[in-house]
Simulated assay, not measured.
Amino acid sequence: MTDNGRNDDGIITSVDTSVEKLPNHLLIEVFIRVPVSDWVQVSCVKKEWANLFCGECLWQAALVKLYPLAGQTKKWPGPIPRGPSRRRFTALYMSKHIFALDGEIDELVGHIYLFLKEQLELSTTPPPSGILHGTMIDQFIACGKSSDMAHELASQIWLAVVDGLEENERTFCLLKNLALEADVFLPFPYSISSKVQWRVFEKLFTDFRDCFSRVDYYDVLACAKNKFQPIPSAWLGY
């Protein structure tokens, strides 16, 4: 890009004509060598470039370039599909940057993370946590994970998603509903771990304390006391 392609605020306003003339397959080769953190900005420069980021070709090339072993991954059975190249790339990126799995990048973990995140953040009426958790467990077991491993991975995914939720009114309502869900006995590994349940209450009583009405606060506190004894004094407001 030319030096005069930025305005006084440093925003890109024009593109070197030599870059504009490159065919799409060469533009893709350039883009996938740009740091992933800059892709959103790059896609905003020109409508044609945005279209490339919406298509499959760029994401297929990115998979080959950045995750060469991904091509060896076979389709898997189970309720959570692998999806197109863009989703596969996102799943691999999430797996690499969020989960510490002994240095391995597990695409399946990334897909299940995206599944849970989307259900909790985008769905107008998310299914009960037991259904979501059971779907995750079934997917892991269908792909050959042991019950213990499925339970541990699902717990890690729950914690990562809950910790990553934005602090807004929708998240408060979501966490409150999760906390107030009736306990349903499910056999291992379909029972949600106490670590996940604890984190839900912890976020409510620390990050969202000011959002409670008096009635809601005591309802959620009663559920916490029923599930955990003793409970931290911070949850009681002191």
Rank of each mutant, 00 (worst) to 15 (best):
T73V: 12
L108I: 15
W158T: 08
I105C: 14
V40T: 10
D106T: 14
Y217E: 12
T13Y: 05
S194V: 13
V196Y: 04
Q72V: 04
E169P: 02
I98G: 00
D16A: 13
D207L: 08
Q60I: 07
P35Y: 06
N7K: 10
D183L: 04
A70G: 02
A150N: 04
I192D: 00
D163S: 12
V200S: 02
W76Q: 03
T206C: 05
S193P: 07
L174N: 09
Y93C: 01
D216T: 15
Q119L: 08
R87F: 06
Y67V: 01
P126G: 07
I141Q: 05
L221K: 10
Q197E: 14
L69S: 11
Y113G: 02
L178V: 14
H97E: 03
A70H: 01
Q139V: 01
L114A: 05
S18G: 11
F99G: 04
E20V: 08
V42H: 00
D3Q: 13
K176A: 14
P23H: 07
P126Y: 06
V109C: 09
R209N: 05
E166L: 08
D138Q: 05
L175T: 10
V161E: 02
S14Q: 11
P68N: 03
L132M: 10
K21T: 11
E29A: 13
T206V: 11
A100H: 09
A222Q: 15
I12D: 06
W198G: 11
V162F: 02
V64F: 01
E152W: 09
D9T: 14
V161Y: 01
V220Y: 08
F89S: 01
Q72E: 12
G71T: 03
L69N: 11
V162A: 02
C223D: 13
G10K: 03
V109T: 14
Y218A: 07
E48L: 05
D9P: 06
I28C: 00
R82G: 14
R82I: 15
C44A: 13
S193E: 10
P81S: 15
L116A: 04
R33P: 04
A62G: 02
E167D: 07
E181G: 08
G83Q: 13
T17F: 06
P68Y: 01
T124F: 10
D16F: 06
E20F: 03
C143E: 03
D216E: 15
P230L: 09
L175C: 13
R82K: 13
G237F: 09
E104K: 15
F212D: 03
E169D: 12
V19Y: 03
Q119N: 14
K65V: 00
